[in-house]
């Protein structure tokens, strides 16, 4: 039972990180119906920026709390900037192009960004210094949950709540919901689609960057390739929950996190990454609309 509880908790931590990345996928998909293949790269870049800025400050001997705040802000800013630029270059010119063209463009962008980091930084795994504080009060239950996992859960919950409030109650949130339901109609009632899309990319990229820092602190290492695998997994989570649905993305992420954690714990850790893919194939063949997604009806 102990073992099971432990796996469940680490699955929850993992799932909440997937959720941070899956949100970006699901929001972008909801609005422009694009699987943003390069979303994982944004999260990787966010983590790299945190490492670069954090590293600089660390060698200058700055207070750890300051390092944490400044590097997080830098990561969020740069991830958002990359997301925004990527949208302007690779997706905006293809607004009226067939879906597959945009998808191919996204694949190209993913290749480009991955190799940009590979060539300009390194191909090796780097150890990611822990910027996150240790909580002494967690000592008695350290066997189940450590400080990093605890912080992950707290931060993820905060981000989720903020995002829900933003989408439910702000003007831009309303515009986003309207655009995802019917882009043409939204345009007719005076919503500026382009700015809605821009904001969506900024929010999605920023949450991904937070996810990036958390997952790298959790794993303790970083590499140019992490974005790809985590990106695919987060996509699986989004599809599992029903792509386009925000609560769906969160639910799907937890389900995926638990499956992976229990699967590696009870079956074999060699196939850790394949659980996500198997779930993906199963869900798409059985219920393509996902757990909370709505069925799309083709207009004739």
């Amino acid at each position: 039972m102990d073992y099971f509880l432990k796996l469940l908790l680490s699955g929850t931590a993992k799932g909440s990180i997937y959720a941070l990345i899956a949100l970006g996928y699901t929001m972008v998909y909801g609005i422009i119906k694009l699987i943003n293949f390069a979303h994982g790269e944004i999260y990787m870049i966010g983590a790299f920026v945190a490492l670069l800025v954090g590293g600089t400050l660390q060698s200058a001997g700055v207070n750890p709390a300051v390092i944490l705040v400044v590097s997080t802000l830098a990561a969020v800013f740069f991830a958002a900037a990359y997301g925004l630029t990527m949208e302007k270059i690779a997706y905006k010119p293809l607004r009226t192009a067939p879906r597959l063209s945009v998808l191919i463009s996204a694949i190209g962008m993913s290749m480009f960004l991955q190799n940009l980091v590979l060539l300009s930084q390194t191909e090796k795994y780097l150890s990611f210094p822990s910027f996150l504080p240790e909580f002494l009060f967690l000592k008695p239950i350290r066997g189940y949950i450590n400080s990093t996992q605890f912080i992950i859960l707290i931060i993820t919950s905060i981000v989720m709540v903020l995002l829900t409030l933003l989408i439910k109650f702000t003007l831009i949130g309303k515009a986003m919901r309207a655009t995802s339901q019917d882009r043409e109609m939204a345009q007719l009632v005076g919503i500026n689609i382009n700015s809605v899309i821009t904001v969506t990319f900024i929010i999605g990229s920023a949450t991904a960057a937070i996810g990036g820092i958390l997952i790298c602190s959790y794993m303790g290492q970083i590499n140019y390739y992490i974005g790809f695998i985590a990106g695919i997994k987060a996509f699986v989570a989004a599809v599992l929950g029903g792509i386009g649905s925000i609560p769906g993305a969160v639910l799907g992420s937890f389900v995926l996190g638990w499956t992976e954690s229990l699967g590696t714990g009870y079956i074999s850790s060699d196939y850790e990454d394949s659980f996500a893919f198997i779930i993906l194939i199963l869900i798409l063949t059985v219920k393509p609309s996902g757990i909370l997604g709505r069925k799309e009806n083709q207009k004739v």
């Binding site: 270059i89 690779a90 293809l94 192009a97 063209s101 945009v102 191919i104 463009s105 694949i107 190209g108 962008m109 993913s110 290749m111 480009f112 960004l113 991955q114 190799n115 940009l116 060539l119």
Partner: peptide
């Protein structure tokens, strides 16, 4: 890197 960018530009 080049092929990735080429995919985007080609599309």
């Amino acid at each position: 890197l080049v092929f990735g960018l080429a995919l985007v530009l080609m599309m």
